[in-house]
Design a protein around this nucleic acid. Structure first.
Lengths: 88, 88
DNA sequence: ATTCATTTGTCCGTATGTATA
DNA sequence: CTATACATACGGACAAATGAA
């Protein structure tokens, strides 16, 4: 599962867009990590918060964080949060 | 009381029922509060006790107590319990 | 002041069922 | 048939508040 290179994150999810919701959300979070909005060593917003902000289902967000974890960008810690890893 | 549906409580959770477990549980607790079984000013059974009695997951009960709190029926107090509010 | 048990609050992991395209 | 997406539900782990010993 590679992110489609053409997607330009705009911090909004578009149900009608070509890209699936989870791909859009992944792109947005990656952009925020790159921008330092979610700094390394700190946790990204919780599933509940992301759910509120983007209006997507819990399972969709889990899919995204699992994807980002596979990419080595974040590390989910049970009961604590999803932490941004230092860029290698 | 604005329960999500017209569920008629019978003090038992039915996994196979149309209504979600959390709606059924909410209806049961509301009925008990109405009946004075859980009096105003006192706490309802703890999450652990409710879990034992109804055999549902912790998260499900939290969902219910949050819902009842939104309805103004109870007030959860961290470390102490979920207290029944006086009926206005 | 510390420890311990109890309780609610908040997380993520996972699974199932349903609906849609 | 597969992928996507949502709601529900269970489980486990961690945190914090409370009260009693």
């Amino acid at each position: 599962m590679d992110l489609p290179s053409g997607y330009r994150p705009d911090s909004e999810i578009d149900d009608e867009a070509m890209d699936p919701v989870w791909v859009q959300l992944a792109a947005i979070l990656v952009a925020r990590i790159d921008a330092g909005q979610y700094p390394a060593g700190r946790a990204i917003p919780s599933l509940s918060q992301l759910r509120q902000e983007f209006g997507v289902a819990r399972g969709t967000i889990v899919k995204v964080t699992n994807f980002l974890a596979d990419q080595g960008l974040v590390r989910p810690v049970h009961g604590r949060g999803v932490f941004v890893l230092p860029r290698g």
